[in-house]
Simulated assay, not measured.
Amino acid sequence: MDTKTPNSLAEVGIMSETPTAALTKVQEQGSEAFKDIAFGSIAGTVGKIVEYPFDTVKVRLQSQPDHLPLRYTGPLDCFRQSVSQDGLRGLYRGVSAPLFGAAAETACLFWSYSVAQDVLKRTVVKVKDGEDLPLGALITAGAMSGGLTATILTPIELVKCRMQVSGSSASPSPLTVIRSVFGREGVRGFWRGHTGTFLRETGGTAAWFGAWEATTLFSKTRIARAKNIQAAEVTLPLSQQMLCGAIAGMSYNFLFYPADTIKSKIQTGELSHTGIKPTFLGTGRELWRIHGLKGLYRGCGITVARSAPSSALIFTIVSNLKEAFA
């Protein structure tokens, strides 16, 4: 009896401590999820305000009809014509939906990125408590995050693109676009172009988080070696954080840009000039046939350029808010 008593007491102790430990872990996860959503929303809104005029130019370049002469010769010409026709205000046409969308998208990205990491730690990659996943697993978590976010983002992007492409000062309101899409195509119409959004977000977000993690790790390791300390003890200067975020943003936009071009073409056109409802592969083939690779990367330069400050702000804001409220 005596030899069994300690084990029994230990088992009782475990039973009494497990619910408390589990509750504490749930509370910590809930707190982290709240931070991801709140800080991501703030960062996404700020980033969208900075990048939106460039995004408008990008969408107008992407959505030019293929069977007509190009209206814009490039980003600068598009910017000039847009400002001349409708002033700077016209470059912010349709910003209300994207502001909401940016807050929802960025919040979802950071929240689902954390969730994906937890899932990978429990099921695929075994790491000790407190240890980070290897870079390959973090890239996978980024892809999982982007795939989930694409489902939420597609309807928001459709409304945004429909409003941006209008060159008239009397552009439709978000509610007008929503009623039009629902009246013609029903609920499914809001997910037109989802294949392009899914490919862009899955691959792009993997590159986004992957580039951020890789560059921050490289920067911290370099500083740690110079100071003879552990990389985990390093806090990157603001300028380094901004640089890492900028590299991440450019990686996101450049690598999977053709998927975004095809998505914008599908979302801004009711039907193609041939009278056939556009599909992802069909639109891609048509663009390639008429314009080649250049057509798939139309507006890429301005997109990559605007993504640098936007992404730099997003990562810097989220990182510093998390540190401040740790």
Score class of each variant (00 low, 15 high):
164 Q>I: 14
166 S>V: 12
210 G>V: 05
178 I>M: 12
191 W>P: 13
188 R>N: 08
204 G>N: 01
146 G>V: 03
212 W>H: 15
165 V>L: 06
149 T>P: 07
164 Q>T: 12
171 S>C: 11
149 T>G: 06
171 S>N: 13
190 F>G: 01
171 S>M: 07
156 I>Q: 11
202 T>M: 12
198 F>G: 01
201 E>N: 02
174 P>R: 05
188 R>D: 03
172 P>L: 06
153 L>C: 05
192 R>K: 15
144 M>A: 15
209 F>Q: 04
194 H>R: 01
162 R>Y: 10
171 S>T: 07
142 G>N: 04
137 A>D: 14
211 A>F: 11
131 E>Q: 08
145 S>N: 14
157 E>N: 11
212 W>A: 10
197 T>G: 03
131 E>Y: 00
169 S>M: 10
151 T>C: 06
151 T>Q: 11
183 G>M: 01
156 I>R: 11
212 W>F: 13
204 G>T: 02
156 I>W: 05
169 S>R: 14
181 V>Q: 04
130 G>M: 13
206 A>K: 02
141 A>Y: 10
136 G>V: 11
163 M>Q: 15
204 G>L: 00
142 G>K: 00
187 V>M: 09
131 E>H: 01
192 R>E: 11
192 R>H: 09
199 L>Q: 00
152 I>Q: 07
186 G>I: 07
135 L>K: 07
130 G>Y: 14
167 G>D: 12
203 G>R: 10
197 T>K: 03
150 A>Q: 06
177 V>T: 11
185 E>D: 10
177 V>A: 03
198 F>E: 05
150 A>H: 06
175 L>P: 03
194 H>Q: 14
141 A>W: 07
156 I>Y: 06
170 A>R: 13
138 L>T: 09
143 A>T: 14
130 G>W: 13
174 P>T: 03
155 P>R: 09
137 A>I: 10
208 W>K: 09
181 V>P: 12
193 G>A: 02
181 V>M: 01
129 D>G: 10
145 S>W: 09
182 F>H: 13
159 V>T: 13
133 L>T: 02
200 R>V: 00
172 P>Q: 05
137 A>F: 06
133 L>E: 09
154 T>A: 15
164 Q>F: 05
189 G>M: 04
137 A>Q: 09
133 L>Q: 08
154 T>G: 07
175 L>F: 14
160 K>Q: 15
169 S>D: 08
129 D>S: 13
197 T>F: 00
